[in-house]
């Protein structure tokens, strides 16, 4: 058994005296592809930010590659959800991508030709090399998501964190995105992804972490009925109208709508 890549030990996080996360303990092995699912307000994004070192836990600790997350920033790629960016910001697509190979400290303000080459390669990998000189504010949501993934990849990360990467992307784009992530994962990149899209993840990911204040880690991407109940707290008989049967092959049954 390989040593864990990401480790969370007894992680607590509270906001305004309310516990958002309680006693989270889990390990993610190298080359895993984890989907963190859960209801809105269940703490998935908070947990992701704790793993990234953007938030400091109230109790407990996170270690990535045996170190605090902030110490290994150059090994981490991050794709935020709808980055709260100014749409009029004057910056080209390539320059946004190149912020992904930024290192702390004073450096010559111009990027090197090697960095620019790598930036273009990352864009080409995502099929948007032709956008390199465009203003990033002029892109569509799907194009911008690809640019943000290129930005996360240009630093050659070992671990890729994504927050709701399919939000605002059409079904075809979502499928392409999942296939791309699978490809990255088979190239050896560990992926941790926050998602609410349970149908799609059951066919693409390796393991599932259910986050709803507590965390339940499932080493296989099987969505069980118990899991659904834990996630959504529906009393019996009023279960989610979309029911899932996941015995290896994704097989979906839609329950009749109640009048």
């Amino acid at each position: 058994m390989t040593s864990p890549l990401i480790q969370a030990k007894d992680l607590w996080f509270s906001y305004n005296h309310d516990n958002v996360l309680e006693a989270i303990t889990f390990e993610i092995a190298p080359n895993d592809f984890v989907a963190m699912i859960g209801p809105n307000g269940g703490g998935k994004t908070t947990l992701l930010k704790l793993l990234l070192g953007l938030l400091v836990p109230t109790r407990g600790c996170v270690s990535i590659l045996g170190q605090p997350p902030r110490q290994v920033s150059e090994r981490i790629g991050y794709v935020p959800q709808h980055a709260a960016v100014n749409p009029h910001f004057p910056v080209s697509v390539l320059d946004v991508v190149l912020t992904g190979c930024l290192m702390p400290g004073i450096k010559w303000p111009r990027t090197t030709p090697i960095q620019r080459q790598r930036g273009l390669e990352a864009l080409a990998y995502l099929g948007v090399a032709d956008l390199a000189d465009r203003r990033v504010g002029d892109l569509s949501g799907g194009q911008r998501q690809r640019v943000f993934i290129a930005r996360a990849l240009v630093g050659d990360p070992q671990i890729l964190f994504l927050d709701e990467p399919t939000a605002g992307i059409d079904a075809e784009g979502q499928n392409e995105l999942y296939c791309l992530l699978e490809e990255l994962n088979s190239d050896g990149i560990t992926i941790v992804m926050v998602s609410h899209d349970m149908l799609a993840i059951s066919t693409h990911v390796k393991s599932v972490a259910c986050v709803n204040r507590q965390l339940h880690y499932h080493p296989h991407p099987e969505l069980t009925h118990e899991m659904m109940e834990m996630m959504y707290h529906h009393p019996p008989g009023q279960a989610c109208p979309v029911e899932l049967l996941a015995h290896g092959v994704p097989h979906r049954v839609l329950r009749r709508h109640r009048e």
């Binding site: 953007l54 920033s73 935020p80 980055a83 960016v85 910001f89 912020t99 930024l102 930005r151």
Partner: peptide, 21 residues
Amino acid sequence: AYYNDFLAFSYDEEFAQVRGI
């Protein structure tokens, strides 16, 4: 001296923080 840091910080503060800025 901090042009690239200011650029990353101004465009997407959270990402800049993850990069260790």
